[in-house]
Nucleic acid binder design. Structure first.
Lengths: 349, 349
DNA sequence: GCGGGTTGGGAAAAGGTTTTCTCAGAGTGG
DNA sequence: CCACTCTGAGAAAACCTTTTCCCAACCCGC
């Protein structure tokens, strides 16, 4: 028999159990358990000896067994249909971040827009006894393709349409839009246009309304927002509409865009027309998608929805729900944040 | 007592157990278990009755208990440090897709580049008795900030540097580069430049070498690749270097870029110089990041690394490892695919 | 009617942990 | 020396399912 010189864990060595620790320390499993969990009464000496033994043996409790008993799996599910992860990932990072300290892990499931897949994943989660579910999506005004309304376990909705009576966390789109428009105003801009995405999105209306409100509050002329697609191409088109007329006096001196891609299109189109950003026109985007915002020339000032904070809040909310603390249902809006780069110029002295 | 009219599951009703099913069907738990799993011997009538009872009660077996017994949790961990998910998400989609049919769920953990976080997550996974781990990252030539080499459970590396003796799956970068350069050649392009990322990346060398090889094989003049950053800005700069000289004869008629962002910068810069893509110069990118590739003007032909296939293969490989089937260690390269859009023009008649 | 095979189903252990209950022994006061 | 209270630790149940025996009853042929 080869002398077991030390490491070489042959890959198939079963984990050490509490029973083995107890045997090695010369106590019962009950005592061992209590020693490691700081429960029960025993001499400090005994407790320490058991702990030391456990450490030496590399004992790690089997979560499965614990979960079975405690009826808590210390696991939550994160459901999303955001394939590209543009929104899900920061959100997931937040959720995960909020939970990792408490020893809670996250099942991430992308259900696309597939009912069957959604059903499948939710059932898998339920079978694995997740403690709760965070539902998230790629837009605020649509449900995921699954029904989470009668689930026996808590559900928190983040950045997706919540079921009635549930807890939902979304970004404060109106507030975000205000941030942008007011930033323009502070910089002395007065003719502020708004170019946004399809009218079918709720956020488009929320942002447009806030834009209008701020203009009105400041006694400025209101106009119609330009609604189109969430694309660069639409940004180009919109510039054509806004700056196509010969009358330079009618040109805006600021464009607030519904997302960063539109903003990028706008900035590119302006440059092609020889209109300077930010000297002639300021531009603000929405989403603060760094990969886009930092690549525009000049880098794009943009509204950040603080998705990772949203995720963190969602995680914490779910956790307190899991702990049985009641929480008021309804939609909670979390503030956005303006990330200033160079597409708006500096404030006047 | 309110008549239990039907739904209204009061949120806190414990799941129905096998014991309850057995009681309701008037059999023992053993028989019930066997009936539901198609094991054991009993009259078809009994089996059917038990199944019907289970269905009626909405019984779903407790995965935790099953896992405890079978020593398989039907759960795998996916470790990544790719915060933006540019690479991880397609990969994860593939992994998940390969596993969902087998009833296996995926823990996604982003460890950033944080040792502590990595340690934490790996231990959590181990405690939860994941059946295996897929390690993935944002570049092929770096290790994750965790040591997975002595883990007792199978590990498959996908799109990250594997430990020696382990199984790794990566994209065939050289093959992908060949695809691009040969595409140019088929279109009649002869002066093919290469603009890529930092020299510190292994893929940069692999792709550049393949580019050089294809040129040499075809008796074309070789030159040095232009190495810089993975950014649009570098694409602009590179165009300045390549097309700055007055001598038009020395200009390339094709640029093969190390990623799509560089390609985008190149295309934009060419347009600004009045050089037509694809008429004067063809451009190919790498990564096929649709969000970029479809927004360039014209849309960008790009090499796709088939990451979701990579993920799927990784998932299947892990699964067979978990099932105890031996697999040859080493790095397996999966082919890339050229996605043709409009940045290279059409083949000559 | 009886030995032997088959059939239908149950009892019990196993998996690893937590928790409640119990108990033996030690210490204390009278 | 006795009754009582602590103290430290163990036995066992519980969580839920699977699986390995095991057993009773039935059927068959002789």
């Amino acid at each position: 028999m080869p002398s077991d010189v030390e490491p070489a864990p042959v890959s198939a060595k079963p984990p050490v159990t509490l029973r083995e620790v107890a045997a090695a320390a010369g106590v019962s499993v009950a005592t061992a358990s209590k020693a490691l969990n700081g429960q029960g009464r025993m001499t400090a000496e005994t407790r320490e000896r058991i702990r030391e033994t456990a450490r030496l043996l590399g004992f790690r409790p089997n979560s499965l067994a614990q979960s079975l008993l405690r009826k808590r799996s210390f696991t939550v599910g994160l459901l999303t249909n955001d394939t590209y992860g543009r929104f899900s990932l920061p959100l997931m990072a937040g959720v995960s971040d909020a939970l990792v300290d408490k020893g809670v892990s996250v099942f991430l499931c992308n259900v696309e827009d597939d009912q069957r897949l959604g059903q499948l994943h939710v059932e898998a989660m339920l079978d694995k006894r997740v403690d709760g579910i965070v539902a998230t999506g790629k837009r605020i005004d649509r449900h995921l393709p699954v029904d989470l309304s009668n689930l026996r376990i808590p559900v928190v909705y983040a950045f997706t349409q919540p079921d009635p009576g549930a807890i939902g966390l979304v970004s404060d789109d109106a507030g975000g839009a205000r941030l942008a428009v007011e930033h323009f105003l502070r910089l002395g801009r007065r003719r502020i246009a708004h170019v946004s995405g399809p009218a079918s999105f709720a956020v488009v209306h929320a942002r447009a309304q806030a834009w209008r409100d701020v203009l009105k509050e400041n006694g400025l002329a209101e106009s119609e927002p330009l609604l189109g697609a969430w694309s660069e191409a639409w940004g180009h088109e919109a510039v054509e509409k806004l700056f196509g007329k010969a009358d330079r006096e009618g040109w805006p001196d600021a464009v607030f865009c519904g997302n960063d891609q539109i903003a990028r299109g706008v900035i590119d189109a302006l440059r092609e027309r020889g209109i300077s950003v930010p000297d002639d026109v300021g531009v603000i985007g929405f989403d603060n998608w760094e990969i886009v915002a930092e690549a525009t020339r000049p880098p794009l000032t943009s509204v950040d929805m603080n998705l990772s904070t949203l995720g963190r809040e969602a995680g914490l909310a779910l956790l307190s729900l899991v702990d049985g603390q009641p929480a008021a249902p309804g939609i909670r809006k979390l503030p956005c944040r303006l990330v200033v780069r160079q597409s708006c110029g500096s404030p006047p002295e």
